[in-house]
Design a protein around this nucleic acid. Structure first.
Lengths: 302, 302
DNA sequence: CATGTTCGATACTATATTGGTATCAAAGAG
DNA sequence: CTCTTTGATACCAATATAGTATCGAACATG
C-alpha cells in the first residue's frame, strides 16, 4: 500500500467516477481501475460495490478514504516542512559573537537575515573567542562571529571585515586638532594599553605596530575593554591605538585620529564546523558577508 | 514521495548504516543508496551529510525521519483497521426482528455471532414486517428477521427455520390427554383465532389448514398475539392452531398436541438488500443459518 | 423494442521503475 | 602500508505501471 495507490483510491471516491478520477489524476482510466482492483486484492477487502453500473463505496472503503486523506495530507505537510527546513527557510540557528561585534557588523547581519529568513529562529549568544571554538566543536553554536586566529582544523571561516585602527589622544593633546597622525609621532607618549589578559589579540597587534615603528611603547595604564581605554585616554592618562569601534561612544575629552601608517585592520570572521553543510549556516554566512561588505567604520576621521 | 521510500529512509536513519538497513529491508545496498539519493533529489534537500565515510543525519533528515515514522505507523494502522472492517471482524450491524424470534432463533443467533465476532457492534430492533422491509430498503437496518412473504425485488432472503404448528386445547378437553390430534378432529370445536389484522400470516395459514381439512372453523374469539391466544385456550374459550412458540410459556390449563396432518411450518427468514455484499451481512446470515439449523422447537409433544 | 451511449473491465504492448551483481574509490584500522 | 569497511557507480534483469483498443453490461432515448 503506497501513497500513489491511496491518491488514486481517494480520487475515485472523491469523484465518484473512474473516468473523472483518472482525468483529475492525469492518467488513463484502465490503469486506475487496475490499481483499485490491486488495492482491494492486497487488502483482501471489497472497497467499492460494483453491483450495478455505478459503484457504491463500502464501509471499509469509506474508512480507507478517511485514513487515506489524512495520510496524504500528512505526507504533503511533511514534504513541505522538510523542504522548508532543508532550504533554510525555517529552523533554528545559534550564533556566538564577541563583544565588539554589536558595535560593528552584528546589527546589520541580524537585520538582513531576519528580513531574508523571517521564519528562522535566531539565537544570539555573547561568548569569548575560546568558548566559541569549544561550542562550535560541540555543536552548541552553529556559527561564531569572532577574531582570528583560531586553531581548530575542524572549523572553517570566512573574513567579514577588518576594523581599522585609530589613534586616540586627549582633547588637550597637541595632536588633538589634526585628523591624522603616524604611529611614530606617538613614540614618546604614555600609552593606555589593552591588557594582554583581557584583549590579547589587540594587545599583540598594538605592540607589534609600535615595534614596527621602531619603539617599545611606554605603558601608563592597562585596561581590559575598549570603552575603558577610551575613557582613560579622555581623562588624559595617555594615548592609545584602538579599533575604530571607539567612535561608537561619545566619550568626552577624546579625539580620534586616522593613522597614516595604515596598519592592517583587525579581522572579524564567521566560523562554522567544516562538516556542517547546513543550508541555514550557508545562508547565514552568505548574508554575513553581504552585510560586512556594506559595513563602513562610522565617523572615521581623515 | 511514496511510503516505500520513507520506509527505506527510515531504516537507514534507524540503523545508521546503509548495509544493515538494506539487510533489514531485505534488499541489496546499492538500490537503497539510489533510493535515498533520489529522495534527496526530489526534495531538493540534503538529508544525510556524507562528508566522511560515516554519514550524519541533517536537521531536515531528522525531521523527515520523525514524520516518516508517524506516516508509516498511520498507514499500517489504517491498513489493519480497513482489513478488520472489511473482513467483518469489526463494524456495526443493525438487525431487525419480529416479536416471535426472541422465543425461537434470535437468542441462538446473537450468542453465536457475539462469540464469533466479539468486536462487531450489534444493534437489535424489534420491528413489524412492513417496517423492516422499508428499513432494509433505506439501509436503516442491515438484516431483517421476519416471516415471508416479502414483495420487494431489491431484497434477498434465506429461510432459517420453519416453526411447526401445534394444536392447543384446554386441559379439561377430551383430547387433552393425547399427544397428537388431526385438524379434522377439531372441526366441531370453537376456535380461538389469530386476528387477520394483528397476525395476518398466521391467520391465513390457520384458515387454510382448516379448509384443507374440509371445514370452516367456528370462531369463538379473536386474539392478536400468541400469548393471548394461549391464555384464552387455557381459559377454556376454545381450541387453537398455533406456532410451537407457545410452549415457551407456562400457561395453566393449556395442553399442546402435535398435529398428525403435519402442516408445513411457519417460515422465518433472514432478509437483506440484494446489493449489500457487506461481509458483516454475509457473516451474520451465515451464523443465522447455523444457529437455525441447530434450533429445535422445545418441549414438542409427540 | 431497438439503438446508442456511458462506464468500468479486460487484453495486449510499451515504458518506467526497481532490484541485483560486480566493482570502484575513499576512509579508517591494524 | 595494506587490508577492511562503506557508500557510490555501472550495467543488466525483473517487475510494475501506463497507454491503446476493445468489450460487455446497464441505462437512456427515440
Amino acid at each position: 500500500m503506497d501513497l500513489r495507490t491511496l491518491r488514486y483510491f481517494s480520487a475515485v471516491v472523491r469523484e465518484g467516477h473512474f473516468g473523472r478520477a483518472a482525468a483529475s489524476l492525469g492518467i488513463a482510466q484502465p490503469p486506475l481501475s487496475r490499481q483499485i482492483q490491486k488495492l482491494e486484492r492486497e487488502l483482501g477487502v471489497v472497497l467499492l460495490n460494483r453491483s450495478q453500473k455505478k459503484f457504491e463505496v463500502t464501509q471499509a472503503g469509506l474508512l480507507l478514504y478517511e485514513r487515506a486523506r489524512r495520510l496524504l495530507d500528512g505526507a504533503e505537510q511533511a514534504e513541505a516542512d522538510v523542504r522548508r527546513l532543508g532550504t533554510g527557510e525555517t529552523g533554528r540557528l545559534v550564533i556566538g559573537f564577541v563583544r565588539s561585534t554589536p558595535f560593528t557588523i552584528l546589527p546589520g547581519i541580524v537585520v538582513r537575515f531576519r528580513a531574508a529568513y523571517p521564519d528562522v529562529e535566531l539565537e544570539l549568544r555573547e561568548m569569548r573567542n575560546p568558548d566559541q571554538v569549544k561550542c562550535l566543536e560541540n555543536g552548541i553554536i552553529d556559527v561564531g562571529l569572532l577574531r582570528p586566529p583560531i586553531s581548530s582544523r575542524a572549523l572553517q571561516m570566512v573574513t567579514l571585515i577588518r576594523e581599522p585602527f585609530l589613534a586616540l589622544v586627549p582633547a588637550n593633546h597637541p595632536l588633538a586638532d589634526r585628523s591624522t597622525t603616524s604611529i611614530r609621532q606617538l613614540m614618546t607618549e604614555p600609552f593606555v594599553m589593552y591588557s594582554r589578559a583581557g584583549s590579547p589579540l589587540i594587545h599583540a597587534r598594538v605592540m607589534e605596530m609600535c615595534r614596527r615603528s621602531g619603539f617599545e611603547p611606554r605603558i601608563a595604564q592597562y585596561a581590559d575593554q575598549i570603552h575603558t581605554v577610551a575613557s582613560f585616554v579622555g581623562a588624559g592618562l595617555g594615548v592609545a591605538l584602538s579599533p575604530s569601534t571607539v567612535t561608537s561612544f561619545n566619550m568626552p575629552g577624546l579625539r580620534c585620529l586616522a593613522i597614516s601608517d595604515k596598519p592592517a585592520g583587525l579581522p572579524v570572521v564567521a566560523v562554522w564546523r567544516t562538516g556542517n553543510a547546513s543550508v541555514l549556516v550557508r545562508n547565514f554566512t552568505r548574508i554575513a558577508r553581504e552585510a560586512a561588505s556594506a559595513w563602513r567604520p562610522q565617523d572615521l576621521p581623515g
